[in-house]
């Protein structure tokens, strides 16, 4: 709940991105909420339709959607790679559309960075050259930028590979380079566009762990794009699910699982092992008084307390970080989440 108190650093205000000739003027003619037919009639393709969201400082915000849902387009709108057709995109209070080219370049050099699905490493540069590249375009001297780059390379666990070329590395290693490169400028906001989708499942799992480790050290504001619901649930503080260019639901992973907005979301949540996502706090009964003395932490995962609850009798007390009792949990409350 602490996240809610933090100020937002990114804000999308009714963002529209429509591709096609004269998209801007046609969109304003079509009225506030044009349907598919209206777009088809004017040979327009709608990538993002009226998306509004806020990303708070220091949180991992995951945008999840299947291919063609508009998530990649949305992140390109957020970084200014695409000009918006309508709406406003604020980064740290600055409206991207209002910025001059020079200010935009400055913003990109200092405040944001991005990791790409296909790594986007420069084939002619070594690992060191790639990681130091963002500093090089800022005109920072060789010694200084290579010192920083070496620290980043060490951070992602590639020490000793500095002089390798990208095509000499495995996919996982290449993405580590991509991650190191995006961190050299010490950005405030870190965009990751399906960073692990091109990797094998086992490596993907490792990289997710690695990513969480990095974030625990760096605490950046993160916008993470994925098409994998499991990945989203595992990494997200909050997440948004997109479909056909719109956002279907925004919330904590638990919120989506406990109260899916519609059937579309439910389809995703059905196969998620709920006991690994849900916390005691979200399923406890706050009104009943506990009647045994095996206390459960409110922020613990269901799977971690399941054994105690099942073998115990009656209502267990649920306590928060300070030790105050905030509710109770009976094994019958748990049963439906253990499948």
């Amino acid at each position: 709940m602490e996240a809610q108190e933090k100020p937002s650093i990114l804000e999308c205000m009714d963002i529209w991105k429509v591709f096609g000739n004269n998209a801007q003027s046609l969109l304003s003619e079509l009225g506030p909420n044009p349907d598919d037919n209206a777009f088809a009639r004017h040979k327009l393709i709608a990538g993002v339709r009226g998306v509004s969201l806020k990303v708070r400082k220091g949180e991992i915000f995951v945008i999840m959607g299947l291919s063609g849902s508009g998530k990649s387009t949305l992140v390109r709108c957020m970084t200014g790679l695409h000009a918006l057709t309508a709406g406003h995109m604020l980064i740290d209070g600055l409206d991207l559309a209002q910025l001059s080219d020079a200010d935009l370049v400055h913003l990109r050099r200092r405040k944001i960075s991005m990791v790409f699905q296909d790594f986007a490493l420069l084939p002619h540069l070594t690992v060191l050259g790639n990681v130091a590249f963002p500093l090089r375009v800022q005109g920072i001297g060789r010694q200084a930028r290579e010192d920083t780059a070496l620290r980043m390379i060490e951070l992602v666990g590639l020490k000793g590979r500095e002089s390798y070329y990208p095509d000499e590395l495995s996919g996982g290693q290449q993405q580590r380079v991509g991650i190191a490169r995006s961190l050299t400028t010490q950005p405030d906001v870190w965009f990751l566009d399906e960073p692990f989708s091109a990797l094998d499942p086992l490596i993907r799992r490792d990289m997710q762990t690695e990513f969480l480790r990095l974030q625990s050290m760096l605490t950046k504001t993160i916008v993470f794009i994925t098409h994998d619901f499991d990945e989203a649930v595992r990494l997200a503080d909050r997440m948004a699910v997109m479909k056909d260019g719109r956002i279907v639901q925004i919330g904590r992973p638990e919120d989506l699982i406990l109260s899916p907005a519609d059937e579309y979301i439910e389809n995703f949540t059905r196969n998620i092992p709920k006991n690994k996502v849900l916390r005691v706090r979200s399923i406890m009964d706050a009104r009943t008084a506990p009647n045994n003395d095996v206390a459960l932490p409110a922020e613990a995962c269901l799977c971690d307390v399941a054994e105690r609850v099942i073998t115990g009798k009656g209502h267990h007390p649920v306590v928060d970080a300070e030790g105050t009792v905030v509710g109770a949990l009976h094994r019958s409350d748990l049963a439906q989440y253990l499948v």
């Binding site: 790679l81 991005m114 420069l122 400028t185």
Partner: peptide
């Protein structure tokens, strides 16, 4: 790949840098 140009832009390349360095 589209991402190579995008990376250059996000890294804050000027148009000249984008062409000749990326």
């Amino acid at each position: 790949p589209r991402s190579v140009s995008e990376f250059g832009t996000i890294a804050g390349c000027s148009p000249f840098q984008l062409t000749w360095l990326v």
